[in-house]
Every structure is written in C-alpha cells, then in structure tokens.
Amino acid sequence: MTRKQKRLSVIVAGLAFLGAATGLTFYALGQKASYFYMPADLTAASVQPGQRIRLGGLVEKGTIQRGQGATVAFSVTDTQKSVKVMYTGILPDLFREQQGVITEGSFGPDGVFVADSVLAKHDESYMPKEVADGLKAKGVWQESKSE
C-alpha cells in the first residue's frame, strides 16, 4: 500500500466507526427511550401491554392500598382519568396522597400498570416537571408563587 492508500484506509475505518456509533445511538433512541404519559393521554396513544412507559400524575386520594408484604396499589390521576398502579418496593419519602408522582414500568394484560420505579418530588417545593407541565396544560394546577 502506498502512503496515500494507508491514510485513506485509516480515514475510512474512522468514518465507518463513527457511522456505526451514530447508527447505534439512533437505534437505541428509538428502542430504549420511554415516553411519558398522563392518564388522559393513554386513550389517545395506544400503548401496548409490555411497552415501557413513564406514567405521571397525582396520587389519587384514598386509593393507596397496602397489599401483602411490600406491594402497594394506588391510582395515578390527572383529575380526568385515573390508572391503577401496582408497585412492589419502598415508596419514596415524599410519596403522599394528591402529590405529584412519576412511575415507570409497563401495562400488564389486565390493564393494571406495573411499576418498577416510583419517583416523587425531591422536596416539598416542586412537582416533577413533567407532571406539573401536564397538569398545567390541562388547566388543573397552577404554579404557586415561587419562593
């Protein structure tokens, strides 16, 4: 190989590498990103059982039921619709009735959302951003004066 060919092959190898990495990144974005929904969005968007999504809203009042062991059931609502969620584990410290929450998981065949993680807000002064935006869009919640 001449020097020029060598250089060319190095450049081609580099470009192929970058192309592969780019392709992989976009493939992964399509496959592995999970969409965020509020309960009322779910009827419009068809979410297959088993598809990973994030479901956000308020914990509906009076729906928290502690089942056997560490399993908890509660409903997530955006005041228009509500969805039943099952979760096994320790709820976050700031998990309360009528507070914003984001759960991540997928729907079972029976229409119950099985969450493997539950996030509540980090402190008392704000809601999870997605939930706040969603509720604002639905005209349910107004941001209180910031401190």
Partner: peptide, 14 residues
C-alpha cells in the same frame, strides 16, 4: 412536545 426519558437501557446499548 413529546416527553421521553432516556435511561440506563439506552446507555447500556450505546
């Protein structure tokens, strides 16, 4: 306006 989250599964793959 779509809200998605990109978490561990994405980074595991890339």
């Amino acid at each position: 306006g779509d809200k998605i989250s990109v978490g561990a599964p994405f980074f595991d793959l890339t």
